[in-house]
Amino acid sequence: MAAGGDHGSPDSYRSPLASRYASPEMCFVFSDRYKFRTWRQLWLWLAEAEQTLGLPITDEQIQEMKSNLENIDFKMAAEEEKRLRHDVMAHVHTFGHCCPKAAGIIHLGATSCYVGDNTDLIILRNALDLLLPKLARVISRLADFAKERASLPTLGFTHFQPAQLTTVGKRCCLWIQDLCMDLQNLKRVRDDLRFRGVKGTTGTQASFLQLFEGDDHKVEQLDKMVTEKAGFKRAFIITGQTYTRKVDIEVLSVLASLGASVHKICTDIRLLANLKEMEEPFEKQQIGSSAMPYKRNPMRSERCCSLARHLMTLVMDPLQTASVQWFERTLDDSANRRICLAEAFLTADTILNTLQNISEGLVVYPKVIERRIRQELPFMATENIIMAMVKAGGSRQDCHEKIRVLSQQAASVVKQEGGDNDLIERIQVDAYFSPIHSQLDHLLDPSSFTGRASQQVQRFLEEEVYPLLKPYESVMKVKAELCL
């Protein structure tokens, strides 16, 4: 049975990233139509530049190519590739079939990587351009969430054990800070992308030097003109047959890092959902379990974690691919890159769409948070109580021993009897502590235990987050809708 299948058929496997999760716009960027249309555009740009620099290419040939950029006979191309065992030459023939007058000058002087690699770089750039505003929107939604809850005390956790208090907004800023680093890295790697350009079979530009009869300047002009037509500021000066596969490492490393950030955020949300302090959106008709109707599973956060793990592992592909590119190139890269580049971007696209949807509907339960604080705060307040007693004339050592005994009794009630923490009640009825009984409410005010959390939130948002989001103001209103 021949390899390949009808990918629109229910009898043929289709990647869930495309069929179930990723956005239509990201799927289109990695589609065959987008790819092969870009090949034709690159052939047109090459012909236009070659004509401008004096090669015998007519206006009629150029116009014929322009008129057929979208006229792609995919069936013919597939048949040609089956016959020739070469995808680029299959599309040269297919393009030439609908451009008979231009057929002889299509791909003039070029090698397969002229269309293959340059198209990949265009796709990487455009895919990054799709991700950047999506990530900015996630940051914006979380920034709104953090600002609104900047002063809401909550129990902090280290080692997932109760620690000092923080605020809900401050905790959210930990998430935002990681995503801001990801946004900066995505922008950097996007701006650092260079075009492969017009380089020939081993990167020496020998074929173009021959076409222009040894004119170095025209060869350099050709490279520059096509690079500018493709919208790049610069091209690699040095290439082998391909652009260095280190570029793929750079791009997928940034995406993998984004995956790590999203995994951490969504894990926190899942843990908070278990504590009943916070939940992701839950639709009115949504079913959490087929057997347990009360369940409210954090399905979206779980999906993000599941896909983020996949995204983090994909960076190993370009690392290994770059390491086995012998001399000017081997074909070890080809099949692998067809999979890992598309999957990385479709996965990143999915987790950003999902995280935006989550961040637009996060639900906080202040009463649950308050109750958990009441359970733990008495123990945390013991040092403040000791200091207040010393100020009232008591002995630190005597007070410490009193607190120690009462704390152990209260802990026994919590752990052995399943009761509430009654340390404060014990202190309130103990005559030894009568000098500070009137101060206990103040000493137990949760806001006095959150330090500068709310001020940190305000400063972080104003100095770091809002300036970073400013270039994306025009796209901030787009909502994230999930079908599944």
Rank of each mutant, 00 (worst) to 15 (best):
R14Q: 15
E70T: 14
C98E: 10
Y13M: 15
L152N: 08
F232Q: 01
Q221I: 11
A235D: 09
I139S: 09
R404N: 09
S289W: 00
F195C: 14
Q241S: 02
D191A: 08
R37V: 07
T202K: 02
L130T: 11
P153Y: 06
V115D: 03
C27R: 14
C266A: 09
H442Q: 14
C399P: 04
G451P: 05
T167P: 00
K187I: 15
G169V: 01
E220P: 01
I269E: 00
D216L: 07
H310A: 07
C173F: 01
E328Q: 02
W43S: 03
W39H: 14
T382G: 05
I176S: 06
N274C: 12
G200T: 00
L352R: 03
P378T: 07
E148N: 09
D120R: 06
Q164G: 02
S301R: 00
Q177S: 15
E228G: 07
N126V: 09
A308D: 01
S448Y: 13
C304T: 10
E417Q: 14
T38Y: 04
P318W: 05
M181L: 11
P435M: 06
K246R: 06
A143K: 03
M89N: 01
I105W: 08
I249C: 06
N185Y: 10
M26D: 03
R300E: 06
T119H: 13
T119A: 12
V414H: 02
A3G: 09
N357K: 05
I72E: 11
H437Q: 10
I373A: 07
A49Y: 00
D59V: 09
A480L: 15
L84V: 05
R452N: 10
A291R: 01
K470A: 13
V226S: 02
L130C: 09
Q63N: 10
M278W: 09
I424R: 13
I62P: 02
P318A: 10
T354A: 15
A206C: 13
F327R: 03
E360R: 03
G4Y: 15
L84Y: 09
V324T: 10
E81D: 15
H107R: 00
A77Q: 14
G104P: 12
L211T: 14
M299T: 09
A291P: 03
V219S: 06
K295G: 00
P133R: 15
C180F: 12
L121R: 01
E220W: 10
S448A: 14
L121Q: 11
F74T: 14
C266K: 04
L53K: 00
Q184F: 10
K284R: 12
S67L: 12
D59M: 08
Q397W: 01
D332M: 02
G156R: 01
E279Y: 04
Q51C: 08
Y34D: 07
R137C: 15
M476G: 15
K284G: 14
E64Q: 13
G214V: 06
R190V: 11
L482T: 15
E425P: 07
S151F: 09
K276C: 04
L258D: 01
A146E: 01
R171N: 00
K367S: 10
R37S: 09
S253Q: 11
W326V: 05
D59H: 08
R188W: 05
T350W: 04
R137Y: 08
G8A: 15
T158W: 00
T267Q: 13
R270F: 04
S407R: 00
A411W: 06
K101E: 14
L121F: 02
P281D: 12
L155I: 05
A256Q: 03
E481L: 11
G240L: 00
L193Q: 13
L222F: 09
V254L: 12
S407P: 01
E220V: 11
R83V: 09
Q184N: 11
E50A: 07
E148D: 12
M278Y: 06
R374F: 06
E360S: 12
N421M: 09
T350C: 12
D178S: 07
D182M: 00
S289L: 01
S301L: 15
P378V: 09
D129N: 12
T58E: 14
Q439H: 07
A47H: 04
E376G: 02
E148Y: 06
M225T: 13
A431D: 10
V429L: 13
R270D: 00
Q164E: 00
E250M: 08
K246H: 06
K470G: 12
A110C: 08
V88L: 08
V465W: 04
H159S: 03
S407V: 02
K82Q: 11
I105R: 13
G393I: 05
P56G: 09
Y294W: 04
A102S: 11
N185R: 10
T111P: 03
T267N: 09
P293D: 02
M89L: 03
F449P: 03
R188P: 00
Q356S: 09
R85E: 00
A260R: 03
S261W: 02
A381G: 04
G214R: 12
E220S: 14
F30V: 11
P162E: 05
M380E: 11
A78C: 13
G361Q: 09
L314C: 11
R337V: 02
V88N: 06
K199P: 00
L275K: 03
G5L: 07
T450G: 04
K233Y: 06
S261F: 00
L346T: 13
V226M: 15
R396N: 00
P471V: 15
M476I: 14
W326L: 11
A273G: 13
H91V: 05
P435D: 09
R188K: 11
R83I: 10
H91G: 10
V478P: 15
E25R: 14
E302A: 00
I436K: 03
H93I: 06
